[in-house]
Computed example of a mutant assay.
Amino acid sequence: MNQNIATWFELPATDLGRAQDFYRSVLDTSFKLEDMSDMQLAIFEAEDGAVSGMLVKNEHYQPSATGAVVYFNGGEDLSQPLEKVEAAGGKVLMSKTPIHDGECGYFALVLDSEGNRVGLYSPA
């Protein structure tokens, strides 16, 4: 049985370049660009077997601050990516918050540059 319940995610983007810049800045990540039918895609680079996803620009995909929340790896200390959110065009909705007094790490919620609510997680 696969240990990953989630296998893929898609985040809507109205401006694919702006969305890529946001995630490059905050998460220090890169993308592979593709087109599929009438969709523009920016696929998060990931190691083989890792859960990953993509940014999608298409009329049927609309950013949301109220839908499901995808949590991204915030590295060793969540404070570092959180410091970059506003400069990258996003907004911190919930600052670094301990989970069970920090025993299970920390999380935060942000709005990305497109208006999607996403989470960040780190062990410290």
Rank of each mutant, 00 (worst) to 15 (best):
V92F: 10
A88F: 06
L33M: 12
A68T: 05
K91V: 13
G119P: 04
Q40H: 14
S30A: 11
W8D: 06
F72D: 03
D48W: 04
H100A: 14
N116V: 09
A87N: 08
L55F: 02
V110A: 03
D48E: 15
I99T: 08
N58H: 13
Q40V: 05
G115L: 08
E76Q: 06
I5V: 09
S30V: 10
V56E: 06
G67E: 01
L78C: 12
D77N: 15
D48N: 09
D48F: 02
T66M: 02
M39G: 09
D77Y: 08
P63R: 05
A13Y: 02
D48H: 01
D21A: 15
D35I: 09
I43L: 12
I5K: 12
F9P: 06
A65S: 04
D15R: 03
P81T: 07
N116L: 04
E47A: 12
E114N: 03
Q20W: 06
V92G: 06
F107T: 06
M54W: 00
A50S: 09
G75P: 05
S37H: 10
D35C: 04
G74F: 08
I43G: 06
D35T: 07
G74V: 13
L82H: 00
A65K: 02
G17N: 03
T29L: 14
G75D: 13
E76H: 05
G49L: 03
G115W: 04
S122T: 06
E114V: 01
W8N: 14
G102I: 15
L78N: 03
E103S: 11
P123W: 02
G49D: 02
V85F: 03
Q20I: 14
